[in-house]
Amino acid sequence: MRLLEFDYFEAENLEDAVAHLKKYNGSCQIIAGGTDLLTALKQRLYTPACLVSLDNIPSLKNIKEENGAIFIGAMCTLEDIINSELVAKKLPALKQAAWEVGSPLLRSLATIGGNICLNTRCRFYNQSSFWRSSREKCFKAGGSICHVTNKQESCVATFSADMPPVLIAYGASVRLIGPKGTRLLPLRQFYTDNGRFPNEILTGSGEILTEIEIPTPSSQTNSTYCKFRLRNSIDFPLLGIAVLLILDKGKFCKDARIIITGAGSAPIEAVEAREKLLQQELEPQLIDAAAQIAASEIHPMRSSFVSPRYKREIAGVVLAEALEKAGGIRE
């Protein structure tokens, strides 16, 4: 499959880019690394009239720390993140997650912004136009039926990006610029939990993600990302769990965050599992109990190749592993 024709606009600044997006009135998209977008275009999931590139806006490629926060430009590649000393030192789980995305051949093209904006995925949707023509158009593709649930007007496609769970765990916010100006939004609120339009931008806000802002974690912060997949490269997460623990005296859990990707239409926070951990000493029994709870907090759908039951079982196993890692109980 070749790409269809489109116009290509290299924005010199963000205002230009926003104006251009507006001009095309919905039929225009940002291209960052393009690693995800190009496949989607080849599959005719989108047929934009124009792509806007942000390559010529150097400010989007910075990684810096200022006033107790770390700022990462949306156009930083995953490789930039892997190679950043600042990230390695202050946000080790982010480095870990970046390292596990896709394959080495994609990581120097793929950007963190693109990863955050990644659409949800589904085995009935991420297919060529020929493939999809065998069935009625599904809801996400503009039809009215969902092949997973057989219900109308619903989409349960799976959110599968690796970076967002870690970012949310670190309490990140994203800066968006659009026709109505700029805003800073907690990343968690950027996601809609709507399989069809999973984030603010995909709902058609006409915005651009410019920057990620992460409060510099305290020295008591322990964080990790555990990705479970069927093949250890060239594979999206079947399930990915970011864990952040604020530990007092190395063991006492003052605060915790557990964010899961691959288990719903948005990154999911395991709230009850977190409750279980708070104000407790982190030890094997507690970890097992929290893992059990987390497994029941997710409701995976058959939009991927494994059964929901399997995913739930794995959620417990992976979370236990992540907690042990973050708690320093395991390597």
Binding site: Y8, I31, G34, T35, L38, D55, S103, L105, L106, L109
Partner: peptide, 10 residues
């Protein structure tokens, strides 16, 4: 890099 996943203009 995978050259199939990169627009030449980039």
């Amino acid at each position: 890099v995978s050259s199939c996943s990169l627009l030449a203009v980039k």
